[in-house]
Design a protein around this nucleic acid. Sequence first.
DNA 1: AGTTCGGACCGTT
DNA 2: AACGGTCCGAACT
Length: 170
Amino acid sequence: MKSNRDNTLCEVPIETREGRFMAHYSMQGLAALCFPESATAVSRKAQEVPAQIEQWHRLTSKALMQVLDGGKPAELPPMDLSAGTPFQREVWYALRRIGPGETRSYGEVAQAIGRPKALRAVGGACGANPIPVLIPCHRVLAANSRIGGFSGGLDWKRKLLANEGARVSG
DNA sequence: AGTTCGGACCGTT
DNA sequence: AACGGTCCGAACT
């Protein structure tokens, strides 16, 4: 995958009804959000969390729950997307304008950022999205309104879309 | 209706 | 130079 320089300051778990997510923070904000992994279900001891990050984490947790409930987050934490390329950041920013229950195709996203022919690269950028769910890459489907792919596993993509009442062909 | 195939296109490694 | 979370049309079943 991406072996980017890990600028993570600390990792803080989020317990949800869908399992335990893990949020990674840097000095700049939320840098990554990881789906629950059954393998790494070891409980780690509470670590010292800077007050600033604790505040961000409250926003992250709340926003995550809201999206899992099919709603729109009231407020998002600051995000550190410095690991991405300019192109990827453009795509990620465009994804944030897709509301719950809405979907776009990879081609439509490509068009939205002014590169109608870069639809394939958009798929790559979605796969490199470090903050799934909050940056809703799951709302991007294939052109025929079919499911398309998902780095976190298609089960998650289907579940997230179903929670939002989005329609997927198939 | 559904499926496979081939080429075209673009960013990343 | 090769690989993807693609797309489209054509040619099938």
